[in-house]
């Protein structure tokens, strides 16, 4: 197994851009994880905020006596700290929601394709029905029903996103299901579980990995939208998306930094994740190897 990983890494290295993107993703994850130790201020500590520090431009020294490298927002939060904490929150929510949605959606899509029949038809009609609704609408309704908070938000994101994984997994798996190697495995005979997990699943993964990257990015923006609409996370604990929407009203008054810096962070994060996903697709598809 370690041999396969080394082999994969050799293949991954072929694209310098992807290597840089991977470093960026790792750096972002590290920054997010280490936020409580490296941020100059705890942005969640309401008592530590001073309204006289509100909307300071980047580089000014506030009442805390330290430089606000990225300025402050309208509540007087140090933006650098808020971005680090927001990144932590956004990544945590979107990655865990994306992972749960991936597992759930893949399980539904694969078994629908493999077993077919009325079960497959019913499962995929439910998925189709759900895909016909905008994800944001579904998430809105769920958050409104479940209430605010991180677990509720994650549940809403999973419910809004698993259908994309289910549809992609179903499409890829039903194309693979008809191929001779599945027939050969079944006629060996190997158990249905083995054929499903050892043959069908690995051949269905590459498109799913691309979907994961897109969906993590979508989850970040979905979460931001919900927060913007006042249904996501409380304003005292701003995520990346909430920071952007908070600064939106000051954008035209020259206080660009409140929206722009969280925006740049979001953009770099999403771009880097997508680049890594692209290269992973190359690595996971042996046909692309030379």
């Amino acid at each position: 197994m370690s041999g396969a990983i080394a082999e994969g890494w050799r293949e991954y290295r072929r694209s310098p851009v992807a290597v840089v993107a991977l470093l960026v993703v790792l750096a972002i994850v590290a920054l997010a994880l280490l936020a409580p130790w490296i941020a100059p201020q705890d942005p969640y500590d309401q008592a530590g905020l001073d309204l006289f520090d509100a909307r300071l431009p980047p580089g000014e020294v506030g009442s805390g006596g330290y430089v606000h490298w990225l300025g402050t927002d309208n509540a007087g939060r140090d933006l650098l700290s808020a971005i680090l904490y927001g990144l932590r929150l956004s990544l945590m929510i979107s990655v865990s929601a994306g992972t749960v949605a991936l597992v759930l959606g893949t399980a539904i899509g694969l078994s629908a394709a493999y077993y077919g029949g009325w079960f497959g038809a019913l499962a995929m009609r439910v998925v189709d029905l759900q895909l016909s609704l905008p994800a944001i609408l579904l998430a809105l309704v769920l958050v409104a029903m479940l209430g605010q908070g991180v677990p509720q938000l994650m549940a809403a994101l999973v419910a809004a996103q698993y259908a994309y994984f289910a549809r992609t997994a179903y499409g890829a798996a039903s194309a693979e299901r008809r191929k001779d190697y599945i027939e050969a495995a079944l006629s060996t005979p190997l158990s249905g579980r083995r054929v499903l997990l050892r043959h069908l699943l690995p051949n269905t993964l590459p498109p799913l990995i691309v979907v994961v990257t897109v969906q993590i990015a979508t989850a970040i923006s979905l979460e931001a939208t919900l927060s913007f609409l006042g249904l996501g996370l409380p304003i005292t604990r701003p995520s990346l998306g909430l920071l952007i929407s908070n600064g939106f009203q000051f954008l035209l008054s020259g206080r660009y930094w409140i929206s722009v810096y969280p925006g740049i962070t979001l953009m770099v994060t999403v771009l880097a994740i997508n680049l890594v996903g692209d290269q992973l697709r190359q690595v996971l598809n042996p046909k692309h190897r030379r």
Binding site: D180, A184, S187, P202, N203, P286
Partner: peptide
């Protein structure tokens, strides 16, 4: 009873090393 398929480009799992493909049935 074992079968050999017509098209060897379709009948082998593209994501499995050929050694594993050969070993899978006997081990199972």
């Amino acid at each position: 009873v074992q079968m050999i398929h017509q098209d060897p480009f379709a009948s082998l799992d593209p994501r499995m090393k050929v050694g594993e493909t050969v070993a899978e049935g006997p081990v199972a």
